[in-house]
Design a protein around this nucleic acid. Structure first.
Length: 519
RNA sequence: GCGGGUGUAGCUUAGUGGUAAAGCACUAGCCUUCCAAGCUAGCUAUGAGGGUUCGAUUCCCUUCACCCGCUCCA
């Protein structure tokens, strides 16, 4: 990340470059979007509470995702809508689920620290050149995977080795974790000057442990789910057997997930409790790559349709060396958050997972998960899986960052430019004066609109203050009742972004809102 | 996890080893016919714990949280 680098010339028109996360966090607290969890107790690292407006915003995003997946899924390449069903699985499952998925025991990453340079490395990425005679009169040099041979030669030279022979004639090139800890005193850490500074590798397990059973004696260890996806895989057979779906089809789920992040950072971007929107798309192995491309395009459209600008979205295909071993392709949809800019940070990951998950669960559960395909001459196969996995809470953060707009020409100095579909409040109903018949007419309109939309009724204080407040929470429209309303049945609509006003008929207000939200 | 920084009201800031001050915001009332106007009143703070002291918001220690950098993110 190169956040410290300043552009050579500052363009005053590009206000977005001056947006500071601190201001967004402050607005979120001030207006009731997001609070530090356990605030009155001094907080707790990595957890956040959603306030009245944050909850509305998050629900809007969640519901729209659900609609776009389950209620009105997209039209597939064959011209017909694809088939996706919903699921809501338990947060706590049989611990074996997480053994099968690899989250427990399998590949949790051991880490080593360097006491001299204070750097930390993934132990399985550090390699060591061990002299074949295991002589300890010179340090054994270590390096990160991928370091060039001639770079290594320089290090060896510095360490006092004679370079006349090829490296592999003198050394075993081995992984750090394969060496016993007694050997560490001979090892020169990748960036250190003195040998013997690496600590014993520490195991990290990112899953939260909990205990099932009310009495201490009967309690067994279980885990809070680290992702919602596994709940889908373990219900794959139940869904197949109960809901008349046939290949290809998807199963969608929204819910909380928990990871003991080593270092929660950047507001709600990396937190220990977060919310995911995941869909697992099951298909014939031969069609996986076609569907992978289909879902990449669909998911990009989704984020654009709720107001994220193309400039702030990046589709980034993973490099081969970045892929987890079972993945046949992964594409991250990244967003240019203020704290990553000018770089991007993950918002959603679309992965071609092959048949890895079903294979694992088939083995561990000893339950057959193959599909008998009547449309392919009763071919039996384990479906391959395409997984668009979005962060709901990261989506909320992206919406907030995208919406945050500085405007010194208005009283609030800032407004939230939410797409009307996402705005926590769709409109405010404001009587210009708090006396006479205006409040009564306003309340009547409010009672009508609230049946269909999340709306605010605000009667007190002068109109400017009320507009300013609605700007700060991103309400796209304000309907103002004045004496003219009483005389001719029209109201003023005030549009958030332009502050422009027009008069429309009182009985057209609901229709007006409906059209604007759909647009 | 390491290093650096910060912590006084919702926000921005003041101040002091001896009753914690102000502006804005917020709430109520008055006033007000379209963008945080005015008048009156009100609410709210030294992150937490311990130590030194007659007395600590101030000095010391611990801890918690946040920010920046590194590390990490199966």
């Amino acid at each position: 990340m190169t956040t410290s680098a300043q552009p050579a010339e500052k363009l005053p028109s590009q206000q977005t470059s001056t947006i500071d996360m601190k201001d967004i966090v402050a607005l979120c607290k001030r207006r009731g979007f997001i609070f530090q969890a356990s605030d009155i107790y001094g907080g707790i690292n990595g957890f956040w509470d959603y306030g009245p407006l944050g909850t509305e915003l998050k629900n809007n995003l969640r519901d729209y995702w659900w609609k776009s997946m389950v209620t009105t899924p997209p039209v597939g390449p064959d011209g017909h809508p694809v088939q996706i069903v919903g699921l809501d699985s338990a947060i706590i499952q049989n611990p074996e689920v997480w053994v099968a998925s690899g989250h427990v025991g399998g590949f949790s990453d051991p880490m080593v620290d360097c006491r001299e340079t204070k750097k930390r490395y993934r132990a399985d990425h550090v390699r060591v050149l061990v002299p074949k005679d295991r002589s300890d009169n010179k340090p054994w040099i270590s390096f990160m995977e991928g370091m060039e041979v001639n770079e290594r030669a320089k290090k060896l030279g510095k360490a006092g080795y004679n370079l006349s022979d090829p490296e592999d004639a003198i050394f075993w090139n081995t992984e750090l974790i394969k060496l016993p800890y007694e050997d560490y005193e001979n090892i020169l850490a990748p960036d250190a000057k003195k040998k013997g500074t690496l600590t014993d590798p520490k195991e990290f397990n990112l899953l939260f442990e909990t205990g099932v059973g009310a009495s201490e004696q009967d309690r067994t260890t279980a885990y809070l789910r680290g992702e919602t996806a596994q709940g889908i895989f373990i219900n794959y057979k139940n869904v197949m057997d109960s809901s008349r779906v046939k290949m290809p089809f998807g199963v969608a789920q929204v819910g909380k997930a928990f990871r003991n992040e080593v270092n929660p950072r950047n507001f709600i971007f990396r937190s220990r409790e977060f919310e995911q929107m995941e869909m697992e798309w099951f298909c014939h192995p031969d069609e996986a790559s076609k569907w992978f491309d289909f879902w990449k395009a669909e998911r990009k459209k989704f984020w654009e349709s709720i107001g994220l600008s193309q400039d702030n979205i990046l589709m980034r295909d993973h490099e081969a060396d970045e892929l987890v071993f079972y993945s046949k392709g992964t594409c991250d949809i990244e967003y240019k958050y203020p704290f990553t800019a000018p770089d991007f940070g993950e918002l959603e990951g679309i992965a071609n997972r092959g048949d890895y998950d079903l294979t694992q669960h088939q083995e561990h559960s000893k339950t057959k998960l193959e599909y008998l395909d009547p449309e392919r001459n009763n071919e039996k196969y384990l479906p391959h899986v395409i997984e668009p996995a979005a962060g709901l809470t990261r989506g909320v953060l992206a919406l907030l960052c995208e919406a945050y707009t500085i405007d010194e020409n208005r009283p609030s100095g800032v407004y939230l430019n939410f797409h009307p579909r996402m705005a926590p409040k769709k409109a405010a109903i404001l009587p210009l004066m708090a006396k006479g018949e205006q409040p009564e007419v306003a309340e009547k309109l409010y009672m009508e609109l609230r049946e269909e939309f999340a709306v605010d009724l605000d009667i007190k204080q002068n109109i400017g203050k009320r507009y300013a407040r609605q700007d700060e929470i991103g309400t796209p429209y304000c309907f103002t009742i004045d004496d003219e309303t009483l005389a001719d049945g029209t109201v003023t609509v005030r549009e958030r972004n332009t502050m422009a006003q027009e008069r429309i008929a009182l009985n057209e207000v609901a229709k007006y809102l409906r059209e604007k939200i759909k647009a």
